[in-house]
Measured scan of single mutants.
Amino acid sequence: QKPVSAYALFFRDTQAAIKGQNPNATFGEVSKIVASMWDSLGEEQKQVYKRKTEAAKKEYLKALAAYR
Rank of each mutant, 00 (worst) to 15 (best):
Q21V: 05
A16L: 07
Q45T: 09
K57A: 11
L64V: 14
I33Y: 08
K52E: 07
S31R: 10
K57M: 13
I18E: 01
R51I: 07
A35T: 10
L64D: 15
Q45L: 03
K32Q: 05
N24P: 01
D39S: 12
A25P: 00
Q15G: 02
A55H: 12
A63L: 04
Q47H: 06
F27T: 14
E54D: 11
K58S: 11
T53S: 14
Q21Y: 04
S36F: 06
K46A: 01
L41Y: 00
V4W: 05
K2W: 01
Y60A: 13
K57H: 14
I18P: 00
E29F: 03
G20H: 12
Y67S: 15
E29M: 02
K19F: 08
R51C: 10
F10Q: 01
F11D: 01
F27V: 12
I18M: 03
I18F: 01
P23H: 02
G28L: 08
R51N: 11
M37P: 01
L9C: 09
N24C: 05
A65G: 13
K57V: 06
G42V: 02
F10N: 00
Y60P: 11
G20P: 05
G20W: 03
N24S: 13
Q47A: 09
K58I: 07
F10R: 01
Q45V: 06
A65I: 04
R12W: 02
K19P: 00
F27G: 10
D39P: 01
N22I: 03
K52F: 00
D13M: 02
Q1L: 09
L64K: 15
A55C: 06
D39I: 04
V34C: 08
Q1A: 03
R51L: 12
Q47I: 03
M37H: 06
T14K: 13
S36I: 07
A16D: 13
K52I: 02
N22A: 03
A16T: 11
L41I: 07
E43G: 04
S40Q: 12
K62N: 10
T14E: 05
Q45N: 06
A66F: 03
I33P: 00
Q47R: 11
G28D: 14
S5T: 14
D13F: 03
E59A: 09
Q15L: 09
T14I: 05
T53M: 11
N22G: 00
S36M: 09
A8K: 12
A8E: 04
E54V: 06
A65P: 14
A17W: 06
A63K: 15
G28W: 07
